[in-house]
Design a protein around this nucleic acid. Sequence first.
DNA 1: TAATGTGTGTAAAGATTCTGTAAATGTTTT
DNA 2: AAAACATTTACAGAATCTTTACACACATTA
Lengths: 226, 226
Amino acid sequence: MNRILAVDDDKDILKVLKANLELHEYKVDTANNWTKAQSLISESPPDLILLDLTLPDGDGIEICRSLRKDLPQVPVIMLTARDKVSDKVIGLESGADDYVVKPFETLELLARIKACLRRAAPQITKEEISIGSIKIDFKKHLVTVSGRKIDLTPKEFELLCFFTNHRGEALSRDTIRKSVWKGSQIYSWSRVIDVHIQHLRQKIEKDPSNPQYILTVPGAGYMFKE
Amino acid sequence: MNRILAVDDDKDILKVLKANLELHEYKVDTANNWTKAQSLISESPPDLILLDLTLPDGDGIEICRSLRKDLPQVPVIMLTARDKVSDKVIGLESGADDYVVKPFETLELLARIKACLRRAAPQITKEEISIGSIKIDFKKHLVTVSGRKIDLTPKEFELLCFFTNHRGEALSRDTIRKSVWKGSQIYSWSRVIDVHIQHLRQKIEKDPSNPQYILTVPGAGYMFKE
DNA sequence: TAATGTGTGTAAAGATTCTGTAAATGTTTT
DNA sequence: AAAACATTTACAGAATCTTTACACACATTA
């Protein structure tokens, strides 16, 4: 649940904003002057700030500049009646992430808030999966079996990735060839796949002759443990 | 110098956009259909995309969704004649960072582009970073290894910065090429990257043949120590 | 039962690709 | 023009991939 701070000198607008935003799963703090806003911010910085340009105790542009400096990661949306292009340019130049002219459509404001938060959110793309005692870190190209690091060759790694993406599926040699060996030309009667499977088993199975992960499906191909 | 890709079916608009943006220090590629845009993107992803909603070979909303999925870090500004609130909401919901209605003021568009790029830029919170015995001062372009100053060429410095910003990630040569060598045209089979890696290793590693920082990930590329 | 064929496990040899590295060439900066 | 830098090229050794050959298990057929 994201926290938004709305700063505007008009208490009615604040009331409407708060009501509308809270309907959409935001927690909203309000301040009708900059002094109060500052104390709320220093209390605990919000995830986004809606800022009116005309406040009784400060120039919105200057405020925005200082915000950008102190809290560069918190997005600011300017919310103001000034609709001239020059105003918008100055507003955005001063560090605002968006500039919305009053009177505004609530739905548009909501969409813009969402877009801002989406962009400002830290992009976590940790790609890691665990199966049994095997752990694969796709980003690092790292595979560990019960904590021990395993060195896999490129093809072995590709093959393992392919298997883990199709767990519990019996994969024919042809299917495997068409995705892991696409681009390279191997003969249809080649045993490369089998050989690589053996190598993988040697490296990831506790007892390679009694595989727990890469199972043989006689007559069909191979299957990775669900 | 930021690279912008403008996609619009109207060639006149593209011409005007290109001219105006290039006056403001942007490098601009243009495409009048999605197919062409895609090939430009896969060649080398731009820093920002201006996207018209009505293209001859694709629905803008769907395109935006797929862009957000494939290139979440590249901001998209929608540029369209549709001015209804519902259109804006749909556009922003589909992943656009901003939505500008035609006919637009060039100055406002420029300001919004700038704001988008500012937000999307990797937030260099620190201007100094230490990893092991390596210390990098980004502002002064200064690198020291256990106190001793190291002279790096511009490309070497860029490469090192890129690595330190992606520590613990296996980076393919292609990935490196697309960000450190973007703009310049090197052949895909070129070994420039490897050569620069060697030079860097010679300068920052204690034993270049046993690197501690810039590690080789066989078959994948290189990775900087976490 | 013995013979044959098919499918899989495995080792080892040969072929290919990948990486480190030095040196040559081309380009930009001073 | 000289120096600094970027890029290409070439090659060796290592690592990896692919082929090949054979062993074994199991099923089918004579």
